[in-house]
Design a protein around this nucleic acid. Structure first.
Lengths: 341, 341
DNA sequence: TGAATTACTGTAAAGGCTTCCAGTCAATAA
DNA sequence: TTATTGACTGGAAGCCTTTACAGTAATTCA
């Protein structure tokens, strides 16, 4: 294994000069710098990251914490974040909370205390007081995507506004009996999103003087299956079925569409469905939706985190706005139509 | 920041004893061990991972390399692998190759040379000779999920057999005009899978003395959209349309079903569709498929890798079988039916 | 001209752990 | 009894960098 000493000998300089040259520091003559770069290339030298970390205290590593990684929203944020981070020279260490309850404490302890990461990106995670305290105490920047984290930078859409936008869309098409498939989030997940989207829904109904029937509300769990069963139940009794359904996520929307079909209902003639997300499959199933560009949210969060890390100001975090509302966009497709009767 | 010295002082022993106690090594008295554990807990001490790595040469970290992370197959393998790894005390550093061409070389160089990881897990990545050489030279174990990697352990399904199984299923239902939507893989991806699945398809046709019309073959790119357009083209001309389509992935199958519908064809009455994967959405769209349990493949690969890492034998890798064929399972749903005319 | 700056460069300490090695002490064997 | 073993312990070296500091040579200034 070739180390900095071999490079120094090969280049005919000291290890200090090698280090300075390789890290782009000042006070290295052009000749020396060139020679070092050449030697390093020839010998295939790359500095040991653990030694680098031990000497500098920087890991060049960001921890990404999410409840699951195999669901669309999460893997999409991850994709956006990973690419942004690698471009800025950071590795990402991935932590999934789906592995069980006791993992979580361990992750937070070791993640931070073992100095494995310079900063943390949480995606849709409800972070506890204790966990937050642990992070801030050690001055590790943390930034969240999805639900707002008190006292921390957050990238998220205006969930309430998104709920209102989707519901208003249905109202504008003449619907008066509008159901909602909300999400009872899994424990590991942030609980703000479903709550806020539901608030937006209710506000829109209120603004339009529409009544709100508790039978028109059901819990999915943000999965296709959850949406399916919720919709089936909601649409099952024709006496009391809504003519339109707002789903808090596109995947639940897919399930709802399928449920309607299985019940012999036509979408959108008999029932309209609108979701939130901008899931790529939405195009194929004609699902109208409130688009949030998830990749870009991940990238934005990653870049903001690196900005904080690389501004030398220890209080840098304060300089960034505490919540960035990511723009949303209503995309109307074939799953929503004017009420027919 | 509390270090090992503080713990040693607090426990009234030397740092050597603290280290031995915390790492479960022998030759520590019960009294000392207990005292150390107590002190460590009270002080909230966790060893610095970079110092640990520097001293031992072990990172307790596995690199996972995949072409993308936001596609179902990949994120599912990842989920399975991450959970398995965290259970065995390993972190995972995620590398996505989707970030651009030159990233790739850098990733492979730094990943290995900077000693960031103890081993590598590749998912559906075609690894080059040079890259493989780099890994083996440094004696980092590597294990692949998906396509077979020459000279390395691999977990994969029998892709050829899967293609044959799916095609035979269609043949057994009386179909004689059977199309295939294959995959022209993206550059970063392994090319074995689409090739082998296609071979299986052709073998099955051959075995049944069925002719193979090149117009019945089209390229998707393993996405819903790719499957959609491929099917639309294939089914577009009624004169020459197959009555059944085998798709090399479930997502292409979803696209094909949608394409058929958009063309006014009924599934399965007018055209049968079968995929490969076991995608959870398959249940909702009634897609018949060859199920491969992807989570479990990821977990198996991760566990095998750790087994290799933790067997002290440096040649341990040799002791593991070179390719593990993961069992597959035909799941018949409503997208396939007997030929009607 | 000499003094003061500037531009480099190298030595060595520091970073926080693991582990080799030598040493202590009590228990066992001869 | 003494010699031998074995269990345990601590000092210090080593892992590989970065960087503070001191030193040298060349340049600029007065």
């Amino acid at each position: 294994m070739v180390g900095i000493i071999e490079v120094a000998q090969h280049a005919g300089v000291s290890t200090a000069t090698v280090s300075r040259a390789l890290n782009g520091k000042a006070n290295v003559s052009a000749r020396a710098r060139e020679q070092v770069l050449k030697s390093a290339r020839e010998l295939g030298y790359v500095a040991s990251s653990s030694a680098y970390t031990l000497a500098t205290g920087k890991t060049k590593n960001v921890g990404v914490v999410m409840p699951f990684v195999d669901r669309w929203f999460f893997s999409s944020v991850l994709e956006g974040a990973v690419n942004a981070l690698v471009n800025r020279g950071y590795d990402v260490t991935l932590y999934s909370l789906s592995g069980g309850k006791d993992n979580r404490a361990r992750i937070f302890d070791e993640l931070v205390l073992r100095k494995r990461v310079d900063g943390v990106l949480t995606v849709g995670v409800k972070i506890s007081e204790a966990e937050l305290a642990k992070l801030t105490e050690l001055e590790k920047p943390i930034i969240g995507v999805g639900g707002p984290i008190p006292g921390t930078r957050t990238i998220a859409i205006d969930d309430e506004g998104a709920g209102r936008l989707a519901t208003s869309h249905l109202i504008s098409m003449g619907h008066t009996k509008i159901g909602m498939i909300s999400g009872s989030p899994v424990t590991e997940m942030d609980f703000h999103q479903p709550h806020l989207r539901r608030t937006g829904y209710q506000e829109a109904l209120l603004d339009a003087n529409l009544s709100f029937d508790p039978r028109w509300e059901a819990q999915g769990d943000f999965t296709v299956g959850g949406g399916y069963f919720a919709a089936k139940q909601m649409l099952g009794n024709p006496e009391n079925a809504p003519t339109a359904i707002f789903c808090a996520s596109d995947e639940m929307g897919f399930g709802a569409i399928q449920a309607a079909r299985d019940l012999g209902l036509r979408v959108p003639q008999d029932v309209s469905v609108v979701g939130i997300d901008g899931h790529p499959l939405g195009e194929f199933y004609g699902l109208s939706t409130v688009d949030q560009s998830v990749h870009q949210q991940g990238a934005k969060a990653a870049n903001t985190l690196v900005d904080i890390l690389e501004s030398n100001d220890p209080k840098a975090q304060e300089n960034f706005e505490s919540i960035t509302f990511w723009p949303i966009d209503l995309v109307v497709r074939s799953s929503t139509a004017r009420r027919t009767l």
